[in-house]
Design a protein around this nucleic acid. Sequence first.
DNA 1: CCGGTAGCCTACTGAGAGTAGGTACCGAAG
DNA 2: CTTCGGTACCTACTCTCAGTAGGCTACCGG
Lengths: 210, 210
Amino acid sequence: MTDVGPAPRRKRMPRAEREQQILAAAEEVFAERGFQATSMDEVSLRVGVSKPMLYEYFTSKEGLLLACVARIRADLHTATLEAVAKAEADGPRAVLEAGLEAYFDFADRHGRAWAVLLNESVIIAGPAEEAIEAIRGQQTLLIQSALSRWLPSASPERVAVYAHGLIGASERVARWRLREGAGIRPRETAALLADAFWPGFAVAAGLPAA
Amino acid sequence: MTDVGPAPRRKRMPRAEREQQILAAAEEVFAERGFQATSMDEVSLRVGVSKPMLYEYFTSKEGLLLACVARIRADLHTATLEAVAKAEADGPRAVLEAGLEAYFDFADRHGRAWAVLLNESVIIAGPAEEAIEAIRGQQTLLIQSALSRWLPSASPERVAVYAHGLIGASERVARWRLREGAGIRPRETAALLADAFWPGFAVAAGLPAA
DNA sequence: CCGGTAGCCTACTGAGAGTAGGTACCGAAG
DNA sequence: CTTCGGTACCTACTCTCAGTAGGCTACCGG
């Protein structure tokens, strides 16, 4: 029982920095174990900070998840925006493809973290569910606005269905790629999915489907 | 402290029947509260049976969820099959639309139970995740086989992407309908989503996109 | 050098998943 | 009718883990 002093006493650190550390650790653990099987004790252990800190900064386990989701979604959002902006000049079909490719690429790079944080582990039933849907809503809005620019004559319902359909399709295809190992690259996947949707968009816009 | 005997002693019942009772109650509670917030105690209370029974029959909380998922998925599967079979004579586009309509209709009828059991609450990270994906796989296979009949010249990757895309799109659109109240009927929703996908299918099949 | 506060901790409570180890009931064999 | 076996069922736990109460300490401005 050679007790070397009362406690190791971690180093102090400004709040913002600690928050980032915690988020990084939490993202890891969530990705490894999934939300359900993640324990706050393990996260705190991995950061090297005590549990009440996590609650101080993120209120609850769901809060912590939510913060992770918000962060990774924001990254996804900017990545997509960037890709889309670059393709803008090449016309709508190129934009669609670039957006999809950015998405699959992002999913590839973030592996299970992407799957857990943005899809499966969205367990929550209460207010957090709303919050997560709200975050997803940004993405939907982005697509909806792009769509209604290209399809000015389409009804709002049509635009909504197309936008949500596109998002759902992307998510599920990305998930499939993750699970099957999928020897098919983001670029080709994007092209295939664009093939599925583009003719529909073209028809709705009154253009030839080619 | 007027204790009226040691316990009310429920009625005995053959296993299969009890299992159905339990599944019904569990589906209710899962739908109301979501997986996370559902307690086995509450389920057992609602069935009027003690907790160890649930574990005897379903092994774990995840096992119970899984059984619910399997049951509701099976219902969905037969509903879809039926609708599709009826539309078979009217050609592929009709089949697509009928399948989608059956899906949205099913989601409408089962409300939150559908959302929780088939989408959001799929929390699980371990083997249960696999099991759930496997169940979903049936549906994917169904669509894939239909697709490869209509698009005999398409590569397997293309068929896979289209199939997963279609499923993802349906799920997300159904979810959107559920959340927004969506004053748009299953029939019209199906037509819109079919509009989104059909031209792509037609192009892939080498037909006019009309 | 002396508050004030922001970052941090130990040590608890309570809820709920899962289990050990029985008891009551029923049909069949003796 | 009685014992035997099996199946449905129960009470009363354990243990893990989210979340909290309450206090200590390092650092900064005055």
